[in-house]
């Protein structure tokens, strides 16, 4: 490759690259960079001071803990759902397959109030659980349910193409060599699904830690108890605590970037792209 001109007779390289970089720079890169510039203006001690309050730490524990738990659940159920959708034939399979994208297509606020309505103490499911003293809405369990809802398609949609391309012959070979169905799954199928499963779960985690709309209604939003980090950022903004909000946003951005790098690395490993 020479310096500037790529070897192509197609026109429009300079124009399209120029427009792409300008638009990307103005809309995405400069605003994100500004968060770090503003955060660095607080100084190291300022950032630590803003982040290490009890309220922030509690919100971080809650957000990351529940996101991780939601991912574990999605990992298990997502694997089962992807397996059933790819391997089994039953009436309505196409419909179920399409409906897995529902959490992508439904606005988060709608999902939020719908889940809250169902799991509130007087809701369809909540009223069944209330007599046993199980509180779902306005408690950490409610946040968990909202995060499972938003994360599910990431896991299923990452696994499906890998399962579809899977060579049945490998399973036949295992079976013909005397492996039981369970052994075949554990030793032959699962190891090849594992990278996609990790990728999908990481995507779901990245989404969960930043999720706001579907969580904020069901959470209850009690400081220190059911307050997630994105909500805390908004609260700080509304109290004109711009420094605290900026410091928290910078922290969240760093975590997002780290997860994005990890996802890119994993995707290159398994050559699955574009499932988000």
């Amino acid at each position: 490759m020479q310096t500037k001109r790529p070897r192509s007779i197609l026109p429009g390289f300079g124009l399209s690259l120029g427009f792409t970089l300008t638009y990307l720079g103005l809309i995405v890169l400069f605003p994100l960079l500004l968060v770090f510039i503003k955060a660095s203006g607080l100084g190291w001690s300022g950032i630590v001071h803003a982040i290490s309050t009890d309220r922030v730490l509690a919100a971080c524990r809650l957000t990351f803990g529940l996101s991780a738990l939601a991912c574990v659940l999605n990992c298990g159920f997502g694997l089962i759902i992807a397996w059933v959708l790819v391997r089994y034939n039953f009436p309505g399979r196409g419909f179920l397959d399409a409906s897995v994208d529902l959490p992508f297509a439904m606005p988060t606020a709608v999902a939020g109030i719908a889940l809250t309505g169902i799991y509130a103490p007087n809701g369809w499911i909540g009223s069944w659980l209330a007599p046993y003293g199980i509180k779902v809405a306005f408690a950490p369990t409610g946040i968990l349910i909202a995060l499972v809802f938003t994360g599910l398609p990431f896991v299923v949609r990452t696994l499906q193409p890998v399962l579809e391309d899977f060579e049945i012959a490998q399973e036949e070979a295992a079976a013909s060599l005397g492996a039981t169905r369970g052994q075949t799954f554990r030793r032959v199928v699962f190891p090849q699904l594992a990278p996609a499963l990790v990728t999908g779960t990481t995507l779901a985690f990245a989404r969960a830690v930043g999720e706001y709309g579907s969580v904020v209604f069901i959470a209850g939003n009690m400081p220190g108890k059911t307050e997630i980090v994105p909500l805390l950022i908004i609260t700080k903004l509304e109290q004109f605590d711009y420094q605290g909000a900026t410091a928290l946003a910078a922290l969240m951005l760093l975590i997002s970037f780290a997860l994005l790098l990890l996802i890119n690395f994993l995707q290159r490993k398994i050559l699955v792209r574009n499932v988000l």
Binding site: L24, P31, L32, L34, V35, G210, M252, L276
Partner: peptide, 25 residues
């Protein structure tokens, strides 16, 4: 460049709004 284009998907919606408050607020 490809990775940078995907960047907004990885950012929390709340932070996506905040960046413009820091710019134009």
């Amino acid at each position: 460049l490809l990775a940078l284009i995907d960047l907004p998907f990885a950012v929390s919606p709340v932070v996506s709004g905040l960046v413009y408050v820091l710019m134009f607020g």
